[in-house]
Amino acid sequence: MKHRSLKYRRGVDMGIRLISSLAALFGMAMLGWILSIVILKGMPAINWEFFTELPAPPGMPGGGLANAILGTLLITLLAVLMGVPIGLAAGVWLAEFGQQSKTAEAIRFAANLLMGTPSIIIGVFVYVVIVMTTGHFSGISGAVALAIIMLPVVARTAEDMLALVPSALREAALALGVPRWKATLGIVFRSAKTGLLTGILLAVARVSGETAPLLFTSLNSPYWPESFKEPTANLTVTIFNYAMSPYEDWQTLAWGASLLIAGSVLGTTVISRGFLWYRSK
């Protein structure tokens, strides 16, 4: 090894420390920049009408995004109803039955692939499978797309959380003659409750900010959501449409919607992380 003076080595060390501290500071600054812009530009749009009224035609002042807020809630709820049970069940099989088998490995691998698949591809897939066969855009197809995105996330977290439950607990239940399904749902699930809930919350947070899979499934609509068989208004696609429009009122509404989406996604994330952190202490 080449001999260097201590002064030089200390100097290089200080330099690297400085660079990496600055980089960390830069990351924080960018986060601060983005969040403060969303708050500053979004706040003026948030008022009573924003939550209660339909969007006004371009040029007319006022109006709100009540239909899109409701639509996003409904689509997300429907996605949760489809994605969470299947995801949980898949997680149960991986943790309780599959374990290290070939099939389990293949499913895990597929889940990882699915998690890494760009969400717009899921949108294209659902478009071809549902929108093209039924002949029209629909809220339900948007919910299916979101459910597909949630599915692998829920499955993998559920597996991880169930695997943390000590096997002594399962064995004790089984030794008492409890059937497997009861042991899993009644005992293993109960002790993994917090973890499972956190996983589901994180998955919900992730999909509620998604736009790309809804662009050509749910589409958007200026009316109240009446049926899932029709295009359904939702916040994220509204942001996209309004941001690209030349009308200032609409752009303001888009900022309001951005604040709402960012606030709820980040809020959910922070709460569920805090949950995990609190529990691990």
Partner: peptide
């Protein structure tokens, strides 16, 4: 009634759904 086989089968089906999804996305595209 022994529900265990049904339970096992149902959860396996959900797991296989994930596998099937990746395959059908590729096929559909």
């Amino acid at each position: 009634i022994n529900l265990d086989p049904a339970f096992r089968w149902l959860t396996l089906a959900s797991g296989l759904a994930v596998l099937l999804l990746v395959g059908s996305i590729l096929y559909t595209l």
